[in-house]
Nucleic acid binder design. Structure first.
Length: 127
DNA sequence: GCGCTGACGCGAT
DNA sequence: CATCGCGCCAGCG
């Protein structure tokens, strides 16, 4: 058989899909009221250096019922430009879950309430 | 194949 | 703390 059907489905493509599924699952597993950094999600998904990919995947998956609003930058700030529609939406959703958000930034390092303790664990303990 | 662009991260300044 | 610079990954012209 010369090349009747060379299985060039490429492990690459499958791997990309696997990455995406793992990432989506990792995001889905974030408990309400808690937040994770893009890097933490990537680590949880098993792909430590793919923080940017997490962002890309999230942008690609629009209304899949995914708790995308629980994913922030490593410094605790919302990744969107301030006052942008998405920015407003994310802070609104986080506040609705009891997350302490001030000016687009999650106060996780400051343990002022029981909620903060949970956030702190989520942000730093995920690593 | 190359360079630019992002919902990024982290150490250095 | 706020910024900068450089590294990382995947998509696209």
């Amino acid at each position: 058989v010369q090349k009747p059907k060379p299985p060039r489905i490429e492990a690459h493509a499958l791997e990309c899909d696997a990455r995406e599924r793992a990432i989506l699952e990792a995001v889905r597993s974030i408990p309400p009221g808690q937040v994770r950094s893009y890097a933490a999600v990537a680590r949880a998904a098993g792909w430590p250096r793919h923080a940017r990919l997490v962002a890309k995947v999230l942008s690609r998956s629009g209304s899949t019922g995914l708790p995308w609003h629980r994913v922030l930058r490593a410094d605790g700030r919302i990744a969107f430009p301030e006052s942008s529609p998405a920015w407003l939406e994310q802070s609104r959703r986080l506040l609705a879950e009891g997350v302490d958000v001030v000016e687009g930034r999650v106060r996780s390092t400051h343990r002022t309430a029981a909620v903060s303790a949970g956030l702190d664990a989520a942000l730093w303990g995920a690593g």
